[in-house]
């Protein structure tokens, strides 16, 4: 079976990337629209924000799957014919890279930890793509700023480069305008 079409969209905060991604999925007109959310509700504001997004989408017929990390768990929940919007790469990376922070040792501090997670993630993404019909992956532009956490930025650059390579189309969003880069 042919691999699903994959689109990568990246942009700054409030650049309109999520709206653009949602409209792409809507236009694809798949059997199910799946919203794969990586954000975690750690405080009230975040819980309200997530709930607001959820109820907005519910009226529009979206299924929401919340998956902060370990994406292999998503695979059995997906069906052939699904269109998936994953929002977003940066939160997933933070969740995985800083896992173990509350126990005093993060994944970032353990040799080979993130390498293993990324290999699994690549495998899972390819499996997802061979199962579903259409996928839009949303991420943030944060690499054209001062270095805050070199390891995080290095990983994000590596991940974005792979996603752009794998993507059928790649867009950079700026102020509501999508620039097609691939």
């Amino acid at each position: 079976m042919a691999r699903a079409k994959m689109i990568f969209i990246s942009g700054g905060v409030r650049s309109g990337k999520s709206a653009c991604a949602e409209s792409m999925v809507r236009k694809f007109d798949a059997q199910r629209k799946i919203y794969l959310a990586s954000g975690r509700a750690d405080d009230t504001e975040m819980r309200e924000r997530i709930e607001r997004h959820r109820s907005d989408r519910r009226t529009d017929g979206w299924h929401t799957i919340e998956q902060a990390k370990q994406f292999e768990q998503v695979l059995p929940l997906l069906e052939n014919g699904d269109a998936v919007l994953w929002d977003c790469v940066t939160t997933w990376l933070a969740n995985e890279l800083y896992e173990g922070w509350d126990n005093g040792q993060t994944c970032a501090e353990q040799k080979g930890c993130m390498e293993l997670k990324w290999r699994n993630m690549q495998k899972t993404l390819l499996q997802i793509l061979s199962k579903i019909e259409f996928m839009v992956i949303v991420s943030n532009e944060i690499l054209d700023d001062f270095m805050r956490d070199e390891q995080y930025m290095k990983w994000l650059g590596k991940i974005h480069m792979w996603l752009v390579q794998e993507a059928d189309q790649a867009f950079e969003m700026e102020n509501g305008i999508a620039f097609k880069r691939k």
């Binding site: 690499l143 054209d144 270095m147 930025m153 290095k154 994000l156 650059g157 590596k158 974005h160 480069m161």
Partner: peptide, 8 residues
């Protein structure tokens, strides 16, 4: 020209 870790 480009952001960090973009493959320059």
């Amino acid at each position: 020209f480009g952001g960090a870790f973009n493959g320059k």
